[in-house]
Design a protein around this nucleic acid. Structure first.
Ligand SMILES: [Mn+2]
Ligand SMILES: [Mn+2]
Ligand SMILES: [Zn+2]
Ligand SMILES: [Zn+2]
Lengths: 135, 135
DNA sequence: CATTAAGTTGCAATGAGATTGCGTTTTTAT
DNA sequence: ATAAAAACGCAATCTCATTGCAACTTAATG
């Protein structure tokens, strides 16, 4: 599969063995993963290397991170056309039952009219509840 | 000031000396405070006691907590009529310039129509940008 | 191809924030 | 006055994030 390599190179990330493995692992996920989740999908992998890999992926726009209130940052691959940049962020959903965190890329965050003087740059919307798998 | 005592008792919190001090300190804040912020407003106070005080206040509906992405949980007094319970949550604003976090109690979180099967219970909306003081 | 520079990885260590255990003190109930 | 319950203070622990540095790998250069 050269597709993985291409994806990395298109984002100006050097396709090392580790990164290819991480990218493939991320693609297999249905829900967002924490660093620890990712660590457990590999037999033998260094936490810090995975950490830095995710950081790199995020810097280069391959993944975005999600704060779901659990304390552990979750990561998910950006969809095509996913502008993780300040604008155009989508809704995230945390399931209180299975503890999975999902991207809802179809759902754009509605804009709110802030009080005088407040200038928005970035918006995060997290919904907690029961996911489709658990309901 | 018996008002502070009344407020605690109305929320079924025993008005100890420490709790009265914390409540007064919280009322003096314009922005939400972290545990460390609170700790620094006192000359001599134990972090854990403050932590447990905030926990108690939160359990009894006196304050609500805010995750603003800084890693440190922020706390703010509930306004009158503030239903921190799942529904009726308001928007929060984090200023990238002064790093203060504000409640915007006037701004209700718009409801989003989730995909089939997703059942919302609680929603959090955090806007980051420049606050009125900094703009 | 040989050499050097640049980037990546693994392992140990550190930092920040949250949370717990427990003995002591204070408050409330009998 | 005495016993029970609650709150407090201090030390210790835990989780997750982050850094330092030497070893290793890859890319660039002559
Ligand atoms: Mn997402
Ligand atoms: Mn608030
Ligand atoms: Zn679920
Ligand atoms: Zn500001």
């Amino acid at each position: 599969m050269k597709k993985l390599e291409n994806k990395l190179e298109q984002n100006k990330v050097r396709p090392t063995a580790m990164r290819l493995l991480v990218l493939k692992a991320l693609q297999n996920q249905k829900a967002a993963v924490s660093l620890q989740d990712l660590e457990m999908t590999f037999e033998k992998a260094d936490r810090v290397t995975l950490y830095r890999t995710l950081k790199t992926f995020q810097d280069k726009g391959l993944v975005h991170s999600i704060e779901d209130g659990t304390g552990a940052t979750k990561y998910a691959l950006c969809q095509d056309g996913c502008e993780c940049a300040p604008e155009d962020m989508h809704v995230h959903f945390f399931c209180n039952s299975c503890n999975d965190t999902f991207c809802l890329p179809k759902l754009k965050i509605p804009s709110v009219s802030l009080p005088q003087g407040f200038i928005p740059v970035e918006t995060n919307l997290l919904v907690k509840g029961i996911c489709a798998n658990c309901s």
